[in-house]
Design a protein around this nucleic acid. Structure first.
Lengths: 251, 251
DNA sequence: CCGCATCTGTTCGGTCGCGCACAAACGCCG
DNA sequence: CGGCGTTTGTGCGCGACCGAACAGATGCGG
């Protein structure tokens, strides 16, 4: 699919943009630029001054923290439900976190000033962004608990579900090594967990490619953390009408 | 309404209130009510609709998440540097977290509508609250990483330092059991860690009472997480002039 | 000053995840 | 088709933390 940069339909693939009143969106549109988001692209490094916000359409971005010794952990995950760069309107100019493209795709880029500007001018946008911030906070908080109390197996399920919710398909391209980086665990741990899921018939996988066969099972095997985050996200960010809901589980 | 407790000095013990322009503070003042904050008081439960915000003066409040099986973990900690209830202006009316008084003392209580109102009216207050939100996010993010990668010993140091930063003294009243709840680990783990610190001469303790003897050592023994949070907090929330800095390490 | 509840210290076996070291499978490319 | 780098599978030994159980210590209230 070729993407003329300002196709309204493409714009509205991002839920935040889609939920904006037409007037707000039109004012923002001239500043929005559609970008390729290749796997592994670093949107900003630890300590960088943020210059842009990114509104993913079909890409997924991980916010992660990298420790001095190189160990890393995913703090939260951003897909077409949100944006990278809440720091821009919260006020600090930098964050001690890194944003990395975890699933290749596209995103709209918006200069920081334009976002800040819109944030102050538009009540609707402000409301939306603040609620999204709240959703992000919930996600982080749940990650805290999950890291502390749940097994790698459970966390893998949670992570798969969160990622799946932000994808248009049931497949995802991602090596176990990368998943391990996200979860902050060893690759071998992920291998084992993936093996179990495969044996249970919940997924199939081969060399950087995972297909989810039984989403319901995944939800059963996951810890409560996924449900909490999902519930809160749905509550805080009602999905835009007319845009179909990706992967809402029928159960 | 008679309100003896509205001593401006006491008000300004809370850094957020202290940083407000006089006009904003005066408008808020009639709504502020000084409260006793006894140890263990629950400000709000999981799922509660928030009615008030709380601005601690000499108390400390923990935001924690309690899992279905009863296990808990502290998500962030709020003292006189901030407020409980950022959800009020972020937009969700409820949070899936619990707020519990961890160190007894006092706090000013503000009705939710008053906070929301002020948030929308006052640029200064909005700026302040958003930056504080950012600081809270940093704290949570760091807690994610810390839970994943660091030992109980290190985490205890981090926790002691964070708590100490929000206290006017070097002593704190807190059983190991409670600390364990905060950190989300077993009490025995805390006992061991505390024992080590005692042997090193960093703290002394007895029955729910810990005195920090060597703060610098605590910082050395802590993981990098404390420094990151402290640095970000200081950067985002400049301390109010004229109010002395509690426990800034002389080094 | 005694009793008792609370808090703290310690032990022991078990499990989970880590670090390391390889071996096997896969798929891309020449 | 064969080689090679990447990805995945597995098997150790180890340390950290857990769960449970219990013994000592401490301080408060009667």
């Amino acid at each position: 699919m070729a993407r003329p940069p300002l196709d309204i339909h493409t714009l509205r693939q991002n839920h935040v943009l889609a939920a904006l009143p037409a007037a707000d969106l039109e004012r923002l549109a001239p500043h929005l630029q559609l970008l390729e988001m290749p796997l592994g692209k670093v949107l900003h490094q630890t300590g960088d001054v943020l210059r842009h916000a990114y509104f993913p359409t079909d890409s997924i971005v991980s916010l992660l923290y990298v420790l001095q010794d190189g160990a890393s952990t995913e703090i939260s995950i951003v897909g077409n439900d949100g944006l990278v760069g809440i720091t821009l309107f919260l006020g600090g100019d930098t964050t001690p976190r890194q944003a990395v493209v975890q699933v290749a795709g596209h995103a709209y880029r918006l200069p920081g000033e334009a976002l800040r500007d819109a944030f102050h001018r538009s009540d609707a946008l402000r409301l939306l962004l603040l609620r999204y911030t709240q959703a992000q906070i919930t996600q982080m908080a749940q990650t805290v608990v999950c890291n502390r109390h749940h097994t790698v197996d459970q966390q893998l399920c949670r992570w798969l579900l969160l990622t799946l919710d932000r994808l248009p398909s049931r497949e995802l391209t991602m090596t176990q090594e990368l998943i391990a980086n996200m979860l902050g665990v060893r690759r071998e741990g992920v291998t084992t967990a993936v093996g179990k899921l495969q044996r249970l018939g919940v997924i199939t996988h081969s060399r950087g490619h995972i297909v989810v066969l039984d989403r319901a099972a995944l939800e059963r095997l996951s810890c409560e953390c996924y449900a909490v985050v999902r519930h809160e996200t749905d509550r805080l960010l009602p999905h835009p009408p007319g845009i179909e809901e990706p992967l809402k589980s029928p159960a």
